[in-house]
Design a protein around this nucleic acid. Structure first.
Lengths: 252, 252
DNA sequence: TGTCGGCCTTGATCCGTGTCAATCTAGAAT
DNA sequence: ATTCTAGATTGACACGGATCAAGGCCGACA
């Protein structure tokens, strides 16, 4: 199945090594060295099952480059996506290996794995690392709730708009998925239409219609199924029903 | 608005004190004593804003009894619920006070607050507590994703069924919301119809129809708007499209 | 005890979306 | 170059849910 994919969802390369990993950048050099020592790289082809649901994993993972899909297989056999792990995301259950969702590579993905025991041990004696893991988890939690806001949108176009804006925002941090050519803003869709449909709680057919409706209205332009240009960002914001970026001042 | 509520959503009383708090139960006595020392009780009436969105709070909160609503106010003024905090839930951003959602009491709720600085300091020198907080956060994260599964259900009846089962499951831990009289299982709905509708991503009218449809089919019985009996749990499971409880063996 | 004002419920109608089915497209393999 | 195949798209149609509007219920307050 992975042999017959469009070549589009490949992502551009970025720097390697933990030094360039934003999540760990602030850590002291000796901690970075230790992480490098206990960690190992792993390359995952699209479709590879990284973690199975209900599995007790013995490692903590970090996405250095690519996309992982978190999903649950329903009793009727359908797979439902509950989230994406993208560049700079940490996954795995510290102190408790049991996963509740399967994790699968969506595109060619480089991850870094740390043996759970060694990672926990390092965590115990490194307050900075521990603090980082906890903060990362809190951020993930809020992100998951933002996702719920997007999913709660009644119309598919609204959910799609929210997703596109989410991509723009998350890319603002890592400069991935985005291509700016002049005043033209192109986003890379990291998953297939079918996956995106499941992610947004709908079907491929309905999603396709929604995408093309946005294109007809001149809000986006479909370059390829995996790449579209944002022509009218404000229209997306209106459709999504949410404010775009966090209000700058936030003064009381 | 809070003065004209039905009296139903009041919840039964439970034991007080940190000793009976399941989250902290496993901690050493001296840590409990310390927590008791720095913490203080607070009682919140329905509708009380505990934390405002974008607010930098100086405390970590723990729900000892009751329900808090996490919500976001949309640009058009509507409030959208992204989650509920129930008995035994911890909230607040350790090491980083900025909240992204407002938190409001849904019913009369007792919370316990710990000054952020003191809590963090205790966290730093108490690995058990820290581990507990991190695990709690990981669980919350997975719960949020379970929520996404419920919300992804196409039919309202399915989302409602998932919510009812969620209530049953979460009550299994704390024995709240549930009343068992003989072979009759009654669940307490902790929020108003309107709130529940928003929580499930729909409108009060549609939700009302879905509830009464389940009642007509003999799957549930509506005792009051805030209390319903589960007559056919398996039917709820089927409707929700998910397996009910985690498979007991989970053997490979 | 009577009035008031929420919330909950119900009815009617229209639009969006799920579903089934067929066709198109673009890589990949030969 | 040709064939093959999975994914993407389009069409037709029925159904569920959103919406607008109205009525019922119950607790709160005077």
């Amino acid at each position: 199945m992975s042999s017959n994919r469009p070549s589009d969802p490949q992502l551009p390369a970025t720097g390697r090594g933990l030094r360039s990993a934003p999540l760990f950048a602030a850590l002291p050099v000796e901690v970075l060295r230790e992480l490098r020592r206990i960690g190992s790289r792993r390359s995952c082809s699209p479709g590879l099952l990284v973690v199975d649901a209900q599995e007790d994993t013995d490692f903590i993972g970090y996405v250095s480059r690519g996309i992982l899909r978190m999903q649950k297989t329903m009793p009727d056999g359908r797979q439902h996506i509950v989230g994406l792990l993208m560049d700079n995301d940490l996954f795995g259950r510290v102190f408790d290996g049991r996963h509740r969702f399967a994790i699968e590579a969506a595109v060619q993905t480089d991850i870094r794995t740390f043996p759970r025991g060694a990672f926990e041990e390092l965590l115990m004696r490194t307050p900075e690392l521990e603090r980082l893991v906890l903060l990362n988890c809190l951020d993930e939690l809020d992100s998951a709730r933002e996702w719920m806001l997007i999913l709660a949108n009644h119309r598919i176009a609204g959910r799609l708009a929210g997703f596109l804006l989410l991509l723009c925002r998350s890319s603002a941090k890592t400069a991935r998925f985005l291509t700016v050519i002049g005043d033209r803003l192109e986003v890379q869709i990291p998953v297939s239409r079918t996956d995106l449909a499941h992610l947004l709680g709908t079907r491929p057919e309905s999603l396709s219609r929604a995408v093309h409706a946005l294109a007809r209205d001149g809000i986006i332009e479909i370059v390829t199924p995996y790449r579209m240009a944002i022509l009218d960002r404000q229209a997306l914001v209106d459709l999504s029903g949410a404010e775009d970026i966090v209000p700058p001042p936030a003064a009381s």
